[in-house]
Write a protein that binds this DNA or RNA. Structure first.
Length: 619
RNA sequence: GGGUUGGUAGCUCAGCGGUAGAGCAGCGGCCUUUUAAGCCGUUGGUCCAGGGUUCGAGCCCCUGCCAACCCA
């Protein structure tokens, strides 16, 4: 590899580490002294003026000017200026651990340092620490990204969040506020008599919702288990155990898509309150949001996705079916059959199909009304068909005692009166359960252990489950869930630079292997047994490419096949069909390519008679 | 899954067929009140990867990888 500039910078800094040691200074001491934070001093300059302080943090700027030097030190609270006068700074001294003015060339931006000095104002009026002692607490051997422009590369921001929060004050504050939010949620619940429990993340059954789970293996017990997709059923067991107001701030794992508002691993505040029903929770969740708004953010109005959201007013409450009726002028409760319901959905240009008329209400609601719910809104009365864990309403058993809250078009909490009738719950679960699609995430699993707990009896109970990240997005005005999760999930990588620096031969987790062969080569490898499918089904996907050469005007046609089923983590590409033509060829009628694909499929079948070969249409 | 845009120095970016560029950071100097300090000098590049077109490709074409945004 050619010289990487970073290597040079790193080498120079490592030499500085050595130079510090030669002067008897430890570049990585274990203890520091800090009397004050930067922001504290700036805030109350009058009381600090002329006083000795010790401040520790990261050196973020440094400019030397002959016998004077200026710099900024950044700690958790903010930044304060350092002001060096050559004759005031203690000389390099191994016993005291100080670094003198003459040795300041051993200091780099990004080093963690400790300073001692008097609080003063410079001629230009900036509050500063006039340095008397300067110590290195940690020598940084990699340079920070450019401070003025900051870290712009989105991927780097997400992968190296510590750099993002070091360079971007706004980002630093945002994650601080999110932490404060979690604290406030706890305070709020404690103040209302809730107690906090931990519930298991590794669960033998992943109940409490419908989502595809993450599977894991417990070596000590020799069994497969799942990461929690929900903590609900465990909170209910706590109610069964005699605790009346419980909550957990749990981690949830759902092995599904990632997008602006979904992340495979997220947090939820989940409560259970015994001897209450869902009406209690409508008030609880409204008060929770208001408490956080007021106590963490000190305001009631928030900007979310271009909308002004207010938590000040009492939230609007509307029945789901009324909302749909208002919008569509159709009373979905009058629809008798699934066919009829699907016809109505189509009439409103909704592609999704329902499997019960009740589900149709929810589908219509999600696509037509949900995006328009900007101000905090409580939508209640979901169809029982889609609410297996909720208790049916006493007035109208077609609907459940369930409500969701919507803010800025986002669902921010799903809540209900808990179904505590064990026989009915078991029946509901069994009705939809399909063993062969167990982990498809389409239905609730059968948790007999939980049913047993219900048979001992749990009191009438109700719970709320607002998502912490969704709340954070609303309160901090972020459109992307990655900006409220400090460590978002990323594909693992190792940069070539690091691979060389650290002597890593291979990336720790290769994720996909795509291999390309020519057709002859491929057929031969199959016949002599060098290549074998790992799955019973082989999917053959023929692809077309057409391009016109700019110079000659000729048309290049190339065809290849992508094969799925050989590698579980990658595809095999078989190339070899190619021709050139003066006229623009008509691809749909190219019989030769079809024959080429057919021949290859036939060869495949011959090599692997036990496998099912599926040929997709030409793309 | 579909579309759009991007990947060039440690960082932020320019260059869009004809010798690889700037600012910051780094390194060597000068400088006693700086605020993204300044001035002089200087180091540093598999221009994401592979293929193609061309006398010649960072730039054009194809494929792939990675990312962002929008849509489903």
């Amino acid at each position: 590899m050619a010289t990487n500039p970073l290597f040079e910078i790193r080498k120079i800094r490592l030499e500085k580490v050595k130079a510090l040691r030669e002067r008897g200074l430890n570049p990585y001491p274990s203890k520091a002294v800090r009397t004050n934070y930067a922001a504290e001093i700036l805030r109350a300059y009058e009381t600090f003026d002329g006083k000795q302080v010790q401040v520790a943090g990261r050196l973020m700027s440094f400019r030397k000017q002959g016998a004077l030097a200026f710099g900024h030190i950044q700690d958790q609270s903010g930044r304060i200026q350092l002001f060096f006068r050559r004759n005031l700074v203690a000389p390099t001294d191994a016993t005291r651990g100080t670094l003198g003015y003459a040795d300041l060339n051993l200091v780099d931006l990004g080093d963690i340092v400790q300073t001692q000095g008097k609080v003063v104002k410079t001629e230009r009026g900036e509050i500063s620490i006039l340095i008397e002692e300067f110590k290195i607490l940690t020598k940084a051997i990699r340079p920070l990204p450019d401070q003025w422009s900051g870290l712009k590369d989105r991927e780097q921001i997400l992968r190296k969040r510590y750099l993002d929060t070091t360079l971007d004050r706004e980002s630093h504050q945002r994650f601080g506020l999110i932490a404060a939010m979690t604290k406030a949620i706890r305070e709020f619940l404690f103040s209302r008599g809730f107690i906090e429990f931990n519930t298991p993340i590794i669960q033998p059954q992943y109940g409490g919702g419908t989502a595809r789970p993450f599977k894991t293996h417990v070596n000590a017990l020799g069994v497969d288990m799942y990461l929690a997709i929900s903590h609900e059923l465990y909170l209910k067991r706590l109610i069964a155990g005699g605790y009346d107001k419980v909550f957990t701030i749990g981690r949830y794992f759902r092995n599904e898509g990632i997008d602006r508002s979904h992340h495979p691993e997220f947090s939820m505040v989940e409560t259970m309150t015994a001897y209450e029903n869902y009406e209690y929770n409508m008030n609880l969740i409204e008060q929770l949001f208001k408490y956080v708004a007021e106590n963490v953010f000190g305001k009631m109005e928030f900007d979310v996705r271009g909308h002004k959201i207010s938590f000040a007013e009492p939230w609007r409450r509307i029945k789901m079916n009324d909302a749909v009726k208002e919008k569509t002028a159709v009373d979905f409760t009058l629809l008798k059959s699934t066919e009829e319901a699907n016809d109505v959905l189509k009439k409103f240009n909704i592609n999704e199909e329902c499997s019960t008329p009740g589900e149709a209400i929810n589908i219509a609601f999600s696509s037509l009304i949900e995006p328009e719910l900007i101000q905090p809104t409580i939508v209640y009365g979901h169809p029982v068909d889609i609410s297996p864990l909720a208790k049916p309403s006493a007035e109208d058993p077609r609907f459940a005692e369930r409500f969701e809250i919507f803010i800025a078009g986002m669902e921010c909490g799903d809540n209900w009166s808990e179904q505590n009738d064990p026989a009915q719950l078991l029946e509901t679960w069994k009705k939809s359960y399909r063993a062969e699609e167990r982990d498809s995430g389409k239905f609730h699993t059968l948790d007999f252990d939980f049913i047993e707990a219900l048979e001992y009896g749990i009191p009438p109970t109700t719970g709320i489950g607002p998502g912490v990240e969704r709340m954070a997005m609303i309160f901090t005005g972020q459109d992307n869930i990655d900006d409220v999760i400090f460590f978002p999930l990323m594909r693992p990588t190792i940069s070539p630079t690091n691979a060389e620096l650290y002597g890593v031969q291979e990336p720790p987790a290769p994720v996909s292997e795509d291999v390309a062969f020519s057709d002859d080569e491929f057929v031969e490898l199959c016949q002599n047994g060098a290549l074998r499918p790992e799955s019973g089904e082989i999917v053959v996907k023929p692809h077309w490419r057409l391009c016109q050469q700019t110079k000659t005007g000729k048309w290049n046609v190339s065809g290849h096949i992508e094969l799925q089923g050989f590698h579980l983590n990658g595809i095999i590409r078989v190339c070899g069909y190619r021709f050139e033509s003066e006229e623009k060829p008509e691809l749909s009628s190219d019989k030769n390519f079809e024959k080429w694909v057919e021949k290859l499929s036939a060869d495949l079948q011959k090599s692997f008679p036990g496998n099912k070969i599926l040929v997709s249409p030409i793309e």
